[in-house]
C-alpha cells in the first residue's frame, strides 16, 4: 500500500465525517428552523414539529453524505441547502418572536 494515497484516503474519510457530523447538523437545524417558521401558529407547536423532525433530517443528511461521490461534493451538498434555508429563515423573520 502506498503511503500518500493511504493518507489521502484517510483525509478524505475525515473530511466526509466532518461534513456528516457538522454539515449534517447545520443542514438539519436550518431545515427544521425553516419548517418551524413556516408552520401556522401556535408557535410552540411549530417549534416542536421542527425539533421532532430534525433527528430524521439529520440521519438522512448523514446517509446522503456517506454515499456522495466525493468529500468535496458532500460538503457542497451540505453547505448550499444550509445557506438557502438559512436565508429562508431570515426572510421568514427568524428570532423575531420575542
Amino acid at each position: 500500500m502506498n503511503l500518500p494515497s493511504d493518507l489521502q484516503a484517510r483525509l478524505s474519510v475525515a473530511s466526509r465525517i466532518g461534513a456528516a457530523v457538522l454539515g449534517g447538523y447545520a443542514l438539519a437545524s436550518a431545515a427544521a428552523s425553516a419548517l418551524a417558521l413556516s408552520l401556522p401558529p401556535p408557535r410552540h407547536e411549530a417549534a416542536l414539529w421542527g425539533m421532532l423532525l430534525s433527528f430524521l433530517l439529520y440521519a438522512l443528511a448523514v446517509i446522503w453524505v456517506m454515499q456522495a461521490r466525493s468529500a468535496t461534493r458532500a460538503w457542497i451538498g451540505m453547505a448550499l441547502p444550509t445557506a438557502a434555508l438559512a436565508l429562508a429563515c431570515w426572510l421568514l423573520g427568524a428570532g423575531g418572536g420575542a
Binding site: A32, R43, A46, A47, M51, F55, G95, A98
Partner: peptide, 24 residues
Amino acid sequence: GLVFFTTWYAPAPVAAVYGTGDAA
C-alpha cells in the same frame, strides 16, 4: 429517546421562532 431531549439536542427551531438565550 432523542425526543426526550429535543431542546437539548435540537434547539434550533426554538431559537428560530422565539430567539436565542434562556429567556427565549
